[in-house]
């Protein structure tokens, strides 16, 4: 005896089933159409798969080469005098400034307070972005309520909020953290909610036939399929958080990299400004490396991208 269920309609998004394709008939050569060029010479080529990939220098080295060339050009411009020290010092002068800033601890403490702000802002911003994206991606009513306002807010340039934040929150730490959080919130929201919405309906349907509950489908199908987009969003959010930091630290800060830069600006110390910019760049690079490692770790199921 078989146990039977009476089916009741359940809301399933209707998807065009890929299995409705007609299996293609194999191409059969028509008899009588015989190649007339049988035996004639045709052009051939030997495919050199191995050689195409190999570069004449290892990859990290070739990347450093670009940096070295730029540095060389900079040094050349400085020592020939075509780049005046009032515009920007030579690489050597910048290096000396860096050594000085590090040895007297100024750079270290500036970095610490900047990092503190960024981390705090990111925690709130990412949490809010992810939370909102889950609400709007996973339920129709959530989408109606959340998405429109967020899309509207997104078009406001966050830098334009600085005066308002100062009026509301003063000039302490709060407006800075809020600005960074706001900036970081949107990229992750947009990417995660977009990723959730673009889940393959065929896989959701498969999940249903496997007997997964709604929660099970979210956990095993929807969220993993949105993970690549989430990581893209994370990368963008981290990037924009640094940008927001620079702006935030222009709000009468008394510590941090931005503060270091604005005091250097008043004293016309371009070398210090350049050092700070380099630190920003290195931080951005580190973050990028971390996200890349995360991608390799979490997305190992994806077939390796084919390089062009």
């Amino acid at each position: 005896m078989t146990s039977l269920t009476r089916l009741d309609p359940v809301a399933v998004p209707l998807a065009q089933d890929p299995s409705t394709d007609i299996s293609p008939a194999p191409a059969v050569p028509r008899p009588g159409v015989v190649a007339t060029t049988l035996g004639a010479a045709i052009e051939v080529e030997r495919l050199d798969h191995g050689r195409r990939r190999r570069l004449w220098v290892p990859r990290p080295l070739s990347r450093l080469l670009g940096v070295a060339l730029a540095l060389g050009a900079w040094q050349l411009a400085s020592s020939t005098g075509s780049l005046s020290p009032t515009v920007v010092g030579s690489p050597r002068a910048v290096w000396n400034a860096a050594v000085h800033l590090i040895s007297d601890g100024e750079l270290g403490s500036a970095l610490a307070s900047s990092l503190h702000r960024v981390l705090l802002g990111l925690v709130f911003g990412l949490a809010a972005g992810i939370g909102l994206a889950l609400v709007s991606g996973l339920s129709r009513i959530g989408e109606d309520i959340v998405d429109a306002p967020v899309q509207m807010l997104r078009t406001v340039p966050f830098v334009g909020l600085v005066p308002l934040l100062i009026v509301w929150l003063g000039v302490g730490e709060t407006p800075k953290v809020v600005l960074i959080a706001l900036a970081a919130c949107f990229p992750i929201y947009l990417n995660l909610s977009g990723g959730i919405r673009s889940v393959d309906p065929a896989l959701v349907e498969a999940g249903r036939t496997l007997g997964l509950s709604r929660l099970g489908i979210v956990r095993h199908v929807v969220l993993p399929s949105a993970l690549p987009q989430l990581l893209v969003g994370l990368r963008l959010s981290l990037g924009i958080a640094w940008l927001a930091l620079v702006f935030a630290e222009q709000i009468s800060a008394t510590s941090g990299l931005g503060y270091l830069m604005s005091t250097a600006q008043e004293l016309l110390q371009t070398d210090t400004i350049v050092v700070c910019l380099v630190v920003y760049a290195l931080l951005g690079l580190t973050v990028d490396l971390v996200v890349r490692a995360l991608e390799r770790l979490l997305l190992s199921w994806r077939p390796r991208a084919v390089g062009v």
Binding site: P18, L203, T209
Partner: peptide, 18 residues
């Protein structure tokens, strides 16, 4: 009216890639 325990295999295998 159909068996409660049923399983489907579609033309596309629809395995979860992750």
């Amino acid at each position: 009216v159909v068996a409660r325990r049923r399983a489907v295999s579609f033309q596309a295998p629809r395995l979860l890639p992750w």
